[in-house]
Nucleic acid binder design. Structure first.
Lengths: 261, 261
DNA sequence: CTTGTCGTGTTATCATACAACCCTGATTGA
DNA sequence: TCAATCAGGGTTGTATGATAACACGACAAG
């Protein structure tokens, strides 16, 4: 078997530690919006690092919109709503329910995106989808190239909405889903899955090509349900035995609700 | 009349300038993934700043996942997919179509969120929504308090899905929409609008309370259409005269497609 | 009460030095 | 010939000190 090495976790930079430490203080409410942070010098001594490191940490938090600073005055905690970036930190990604929730969010986006794409797609969009599909046909299932083309297909669908934010958000969520799959670890793959997955994609493409919004939504819903079962989530129609009936029906209802139309 | 002073735009920090300069190089493809950046010293001299400033800029880009660096080797451009944050920079927010696109994205999220909320809401969620609605009743239309409670209502709906990412994403998008409204500037408000808006919210709450997913989606769709017309977007049912019939129908179809159920 | 000045504290930037680390190439030993 | 070892230079990471720009309050002068 191949070696399974954990990515060596060299201690992250000091500035990262300082930044997450301050970030935690804010998240846990010990630093409220409007509060003034200690001076850079004070932070440097309390953390036992140089002022330079503190400054890098603050620069980072400032770029995230968590704090703002003014020369001669100090640094202050910003309102939570002012966060200018959306980020999902690596720790929460590894929680089990993260995966399910992210997958659901992805579904919310994808199903609607498919409908919009069907009514707005251009010829170039169709070509991009077909190219991605071709890439999936030639690459082995689950390989890097396969995954790349899989994401490429969904991105092409999103871009067919002619709304750039759709693609931006979808790719972001999809990448988090992928990371969270990797965090969960193993998943078996088979040639059967490859065929099934490809077929699902082809049906999506056909509906979009035909300009059939409802059909595209439905095809995407089926694809997501299939993908869910393939990665071991309850809610996929093909899942053998749901672990918890209650949760199962809840998820299923959710997925089906998206297809309603 | 009151003075209308522009917020004095003190030049941003040098590190910000450097960071966006490098960021632009990456975005425009002059720096491709895998490429090595010039050394910190070289960047410092070319930009005419100290190495410290360059380091703050790099720390920021690293935290955004745009580049990665290793001690003793250098800094390299990361794959685009590795971006760990989702950000919409202020410049693109001010483009006219940004607003329309963001609003559409918000619609995609909200309509589905309303349906999920209707089938999963707890008593505490209902209470939170009612509290926000009360806040809107007492605050003057368009005031800060009003806006806060408006956002609070939608956030409460999102949290009723029991999926934390829904709220996180929705709040993020909503804030961008709000900023983009502010960037666009003027919009008239009337007491009439206050009553209408409140009524729309109340219908959403009623449907969620009743556990009626389809009704909640429909109510949310109507609310969004109304909101669109109130901020001057074509697509709202109440908009008097659509500027461009083609675009009008396109948006309307999109909004209606989300309600299909 | 208003205005101007000054001193103190803070952030922003610069400059320099050293430590930790990677890469390369020469040297050494078998 | 080949592999291991080691020295050197280059790069990032961190520390330290100094200076400039700025905010704010105290205080005196009018």
């Amino acid at each position: 078997m191949t070696l399974k090495l954990d990515k060596v976790n060299r201690g992250p930079h000091l500035s990262t530690l300082v930044a997450s430490s301050i970030s935690r203080e804010i998240a846990q409410g010990r630093l409220k919006p409007g509060d003034q942070l200690p001076t850079e010098q004070a932070l440097a001594t309390t953390f036992g690092v140089s002022r330079n490191v503190v400054r890098e940490a603050i620069a980072r938090l400032r770029s995230e919109g968590r704090i703002w600073s003014q020369q001669g005055r100090g640094a202050f905690v910003a309102d939570a709503a002012n966060a200018t970036v959306l980020t999902i930190d690596y720790e929460t990604l590894q929680r089990a329910d993260s995966f399910r929730n992210l997958f659901e969010l992805r579904g919310v986006l994808e199903v609607q995106i498919a409908a919009l794409a069907a009514s707005r797609r251009s010829d170039a969009d169709i070509a991009a989808m077909e190219q991605a599909l071709d890439g999936m046909r030639t690459a082995p299932y689950g390989s890097v190239a396969w995954l790349k083309n899989d994401l490429g297909f969904h991105r092409a669908v999103a871009e067919a909405t002619q709304n750039p934010y759709m693609g931006q958000f979808l790719v972001f969520v999809s990448e988090r889903v992928r990371e969270s799959i990797l965090a969960a670890g193993n998943q078996q793959k088979s040639d059967d899955m490859a065929r099934t997955t490809l077929g699902e994609h082809e049906r999506i493409l056909a509906a979009i090509k035909a300009g059939d919004a409802k059909g595209a939504s439905a095809a995407m819903t089926r694809h997501l349900a299939g993908a869910a079962s393939r990665v071991g989530l309850p809610g996929g129609e093909a899942s053998a035995k749901p672990a918890s009936p209650a949760r199962h029906s809840r998820l299923r209802k959710a997925v089906r609700g998206q297809a309603a139309g």
